[in-house]
Write a protein that binds this DNA or RNA. Structure first.
Lengths: 213, 213
DNA sequence: TTTTATTACTGTACCGAATCCAATAATACG
DNA sequence: CGTATTATTGGATTCGGTACAGTAATAAAA
C-alpha cells in the first residue's frame, strides 16, 4: 500500500512461489527499454513473465514500484545509517553522513529506472506520485531523528524544514548525477556538494532551536 | 495537461458558459467536507454542479486540480516576483524575497485543500502526483533564475540543489503552518524562518559557483 | 434573415490501474 | 489421509482519464 513491496521473505509453509518476483522485474526492464514505462501495461509485464496480472500485485503494490527497485533497498537503510551516525556531533553532520552512506550504494552503472525514465518521458503522474511518496517517508524519518538529536522542546518548523531541504538537495544531486551520462562516477560526491550548504546554513539555527521555544 | 487549469478567460465568440467553473469548485468544496477528497468521485462533483462529467474536464485537467485552486494563482505569480527581485544583491536574497511575496498572498483563513486533505487522509497517490508536479514546475523556474543570476558558466548542481532545497523548505513551512490550527496567522513568517538558513548556507557557494567551473 | 465560425456541452465508448472476492493448486505438517 | 497455509488465477467492479462524434448556443459575416 505504501509503495514498498508486498512480498519480500518466504514463509516455510504453503504453496511455493514460482520465483515470480525477479522474473517480473526482468520482464519489466526489457519492456521499459523496448517501449517506455508509460507505454507498457501491467498486463504485458505479467504476460512476459508468464504469470497472471493479479500475481503482479502479489509482489508489487503498484506499477510504479518497478521504477524504484534499485532505490528502495538503499532507502530502507537510511534509518539504520541515521542511528549509526547519531552520536557524532551536530545533528546536521549526522544526517549528512547518513545520507553519504546511503549514496555510497549507487555507482556509475545501474542508474535506477526512476531517474532514467524521468529524463526520457518527462514526468508522468505515476512517477511523481511514487517519488513524493518515498520522499515523504524519508522526510518523516529525518524529521524525527533531527527532533530527537536537537533535544526536547525542539521547535517543529526548523527540524521539518531542514529535513525536507536536505532531502531535496539530495534529490537534486541524484537528478544531476543521473543526467551526467556515462562519465558520472559515484553518486556520493554529488550528494555531498549539494547537501553541505544546507547543513551549514542550519547548523546554528538547529543549535538554538531548543532554546527559542 | 500540466496540472494547471484548462479554461481560464472567456473568449468573445461561441456559446457562452453556464458559469460552470465556480459551481464545480463549490460543489467540490461541499463534497470534500462531507466525504473526503478520496471519497468523492468526479461524477458526484459534476452531478452536484449540474453539469456532465465531461464538462468537468473542460475546466480542470484533473480531479487533483481542485486541491490547488487557491494555490495555483499564487504560484503563477512567482515568475513575476522573481523578476521584480532580480536586481537586489545576492541571488539567494532575491529568491527569498520573491518567495515572501508569494507567501504574503496566504492568510490565516482559507487554507488550501491540498494541505487540509493531506492532514486528513494522509497522502493519496493523486495528491502526491499533483503536488510534485507543481513543485517541479516552480523548481525549474527558480533554477533558471538562479543560474542567470549567478552568471554564465554557473555550475548546474549548486543552482539546482539550492532551488530544490529552498522550495522544499517553503513546502515544509506551508505544512507546519497549515497544521498550526486556528491561531496560525500569516504564512510569510513561517516561510521566512524556514528559507533563511538555506539561503544563508548557499550564499557563499553560489558566489563561487561561476569560478569553480 | 440566413449562413457560418466558434465555443460549450453531452453521450458513448474505451483504456489502464487498482481493488475485491471466490476458487483452485501446491506445499508442509499432524 | 485430512488440514492449515500460501500462491496463483479469473472475474467482476470502480474510478480517473482520453477520444470522438454530435448537438446547442452565441456572435459576426453574408
Amino acid at each position: 500500500m505504501m509503495g514498498a513491496t508486498v512480498v519480500k521473505e518466504t514463509p516455510k509453509a504453503g504453496r511455493p512461489r514460482r520465483s515470480s518476483r525477479q522474473m517480473l522485474e526482468e520482464a519489466a526492464a526489457e519492456l521499459f527499454l523496448e517501449q517506455t514505462y508509460a507505454g507498457t501495461t501491467i498486463e504485458q509485464i505479467a504476460q512476459r513473465a508468464g504469470v497472471s496480472r493479479n500475481t503482479f500485485f502479489n509482489y508489487f503494490s503498484a506499477k510504479s514500484d518497478l521504477l524504484w527497485v534499485d532505490i528502495d533497498d538503499g532507502l530502507a537503510g537510511l534509518a539504520r545509517s541515521l542511528d549509526e551516525c547519531a552520536g557524532a556531533g551536530h545533528a546536521t553532520d549526522a544526517v549528512r553522513r547518513a545520507l553519504m552512506i546511503v549514496a555510497d550504494g549507487f555507482g556509475p552503472a545501474n542508474v535506477p529506472w526512476a531517474l532514467t525514465q524521468y529524463e526520457l518521458m518527462g514526468t508522468s503522474a505515476e512517477l511523481e506520485a511514487s517519488a513524493l511518496s518515498r520522499f515523504m517517508a524519508q522526510a518523516d524519518l529525518v524529521t524525527q531523528f533531527t527532533s530527537i538529536q536537537v533535544g526536547t522542546g525542539a521547535a517543529v518548523l526548523p527540524c521539518r524544514a531542514f529535513s525536507l531541504a536536505v532531502l531535496a538537495a539530495t534529490a537534486a544531486a541524484a537528478g544531476v548525477w543521473a543526467k551526467a551520462g556515462v562519465a558520472r562516477g559515484r553518486l556520493a560526491p554529488y550528494v555531498d556538494e549539494a547537501v553541505s550548504p544546507v547543513c551549514e546554513g542550519y547548523r546554528l539555527v538547529l543549535a538554538q532551536a531548543r532554546i527559542d521555544e
